[in-house]
Each structure stands twice: as structure tokens, then as C-alpha cells.
Design a protein around this nucleic acid. Sequence first.
DNA 1: AGATTCGTGCGAGTAAGTTGCATTTAAGTA
DNA 2: TACTTAAATGCAACTTACTCGCACGAATCT
Lengths: 123, 123
Amino acid sequence: MQIKNIIEEKNLKLTAARRELLEIFNFEQRPLCFEDIKDKINMDKATFYRNILMFEKESIVRGFESNDKKRYYEIQGSAHSHFICNLCNDIECLDEVRPKKLSGYTIVDTIYKGICKVCNKES
Amino acid sequence: MQIKNIIEEKNLKLTAARRELLEIFNFEQRPLCFEDIKDKINMDKATFYRNILMFEKESIVRGFESNDKKRYYEIQGSAHSHFICNLCNDIECLDEVRPKKLSGYTIVDTIYKGICKVCNKES
DNA sequence: AGATTCGTGCGAGTAAGTTGCATTTAAGTA
DNA sequence: TACTTAAATGCAACTTACTCGCACGAATCT
Ligand SMILES: [Mn+2]
Ligand SMILES: [Mn+2]
Ligand SMILES: [Zn+2]
Ligand SMILES: [Zn+2]
């Protein structure tokens, strides 16, 4: 979907900062934190976090905390779970669609933590 | 298991601080962060975090990051997964034993995020 | 007792994220 | 196209969950 459409669909102003952010998240299609992209973007960190907050509220991106105390954000696409390595802190998107059900709960995200393929081989 | 045994099994010194921590974690049997217990314990936060680090290294407790940017620690018992509510930040232990397998990966922990029973009723 | 080792308290430092405020800008209206 | 205004931005100060260096203290060994 076009970035312009994403923004207009939610009745948000299309600013340079928002376009920049959505272009990166749309291209990368993986979870990124502020540190990952701060050198590629042309805005203050306050602007980054305020826009991300808005994107999360509007369900344009989704975020989660990783082991490194940073929050990672990813554009909303098809539902999938994530694997976070306890050793190298790498985050992987798993293609698995989670049919997991828990009565009374709404499961939005599933995160597996453990040791990734690379780190498993090295040990 | 007795606290004294847990410590001696790992060849650690049983200090007052360590006994205090393990007594609380053993009694509570749920994930706790520093803030949760700081008023119940008699040690500096540096001592708390240094001992927790040791406990994690020795697989006496296990920790994970929650939505509130705090790390929660829980004594190692039977394997189970956790649910973290995106609205009230409550953490629940799920009795489910994870049968989940992923080739090449070692899954140590599973965290579900979403909306808990209480918050689901309120909305 | 003296020496070595490990644990602890204290205070300062770190870093991700947040907030208040003055200024700028997108976008609707004339 | 100029005018208007609410919303977005940059900057700097702030918050907070840890982390680290260091001096002191307690246990253990000889
Ligand atoms: Mn993903
Ligand atoms: Mn638990
Ligand atoms: Zn890894
Ligand atoms: Zn809840």
C-alpha cells in the first residue's frame, strides 16, 4: 500500500518525518529500533517517538520490547510471531501464523526467546 | 527445595542478601521486578541487580523484559509461558507447557502479549 | 594474625525514552 | 494565492531503570 494512502486513511497529516519513517519501515519489513535508523532519518528523537506512538495508536506499526531494553517497531503486515535470541539479541520474524487461542484473552503477539540457529551452532 | 541447598549446589556463598532475595522469590512464585520488592528487602539496588545477574547465570532465576521497560525475575520452576497485558501491563503465568518446537532453535521462554481477561471485560 | 577473596553500599554515570515550550508547517478557507 | 489555525517539530531539560568504580567489610585460608 502507498504511504500516502496509509496516512490519509487514518486522517493524519502527511509530514516529511512521517513519510521518511514509513518509507523505511515499509522497505525494511522487519523490527527496527530508534538506534537502527537514527542515522538514516532527518528528525529529532522526540519526533521519532511521537510519530511512532501515533503509528502504534493507529495500528500502522506494532512494537515490542526486546532483551536489550529497546523497543522495536515493525509495519503491520500479516500476523506473525518473533524469535529473540538471548545470546546475540537478534530478532527474527517467524512465518508461523499463530492459531494459539486462550479463552478470555486476546493474543496480539507471540514472542519466543531462546537460542538462535547461529548461536546454537557456535556452542 | 531449600534455599540453602540451592545456593550450595551452585557453590555460592549464602549471604544475608541472597537469602532474603531467594526467600521472596521462592514464596511469591511469580515474576517480580526490583520495584516490586525494594521496600521488602534490605539491600542496595546494586546488590539486588548483581545478585540477580548471578542467579540468572546460575539458572536459579529467569528474567524477561515487560512492556513497562522493567525486567521481571522469577524462580526457576516447571517450564511455563507468560502472558503480558498491553493495557494494564499485568503479567500472568500460564500453566501451559510449551510443546512448541522450532528446528535449529532452542526455545527457552514463550511470551504472549495482548489483552488480559480483566481488560477484555472492561472494553 | 595476616593475606586473599568475595560481597556490599554509596555515589556517580549511562542511555532509552519523555516532556515543556517556542517555532514552524500542513492543509483547510477565503 | 494569501490567511488562519491546529497540529507537528526541534531543542533542551528531565526521568528512570539500571550499571560501574571504588572503598569498606566479612568470610575463608594458612
Ligand atoms: Mn516481524
Ligand atoms: Mn511464571
Ligand atoms: Zn543468537
Ligand atoms: Zn490487562
